[in-house]
């Protein structure tokens, strides 16, 4: 494994650690363990803990994946791991 590949993998692991920590806090701490405490806060007709468990967590999951996509795009560019866009190339070739 080249030195570059090693660094790429280390940075990849760092991105995963950050995003999965957020994922863990949202899923298990905010929506389950501390849900009753958060319920003391109200947003409109929602108790906050209840909203996290039935709505908020799902929105955050979607956002996390798209943040991951952006961060990995940046990382791939930094280490020149961009892939060929097969579909676009074929379209350009008139297939």
């Amino acid at each position: 494994m080249s030195k570059d590949d090693n660094l790429y993998w280390k940075e990849n692991i760092r991105i995963l650690t950050i995003l999965l920590s957020i994922w863990f806090v949202v899923s298990f701490l905010m929506s389950v363990i501390f849900v009753d405490q958060l319920d003391a806060i109200r947003i409109g007709g929602f108790k906050f803990g209840f909203w996290m468990a039935q709505q908020g967590s799902i929105y955050i999951y979607v956002i996390l994946i798209f943040i991951y996509l952006k961060m990995m795009d940046k990382l791939d560019r930094k280490y020149h791991h961009e892939e060929k866009d097969i579909l676009a190339e074929e379209e350009a070739a008139g297939e």
């Binding site: 995003l19 994922w23 999951y61 991951y68």
Partner: peptide, 29 residues
């Protein structure tokens, strides 16, 4: 199911969406 379980129904709501974060970050690519 959620209608009958109330807040506890969140096990299905989170359980059947949260796995996609793991799929996207740990498995699919």
């Amino acid at each position: 199911i959620v209608s009958y379980m109330g807040r506890d129904g969140s096990v299905y709501l989170m359980g059947w969406t949260g796995g996609y974060v793991l799929l996207a970050l740990l498995i699919a690519p």
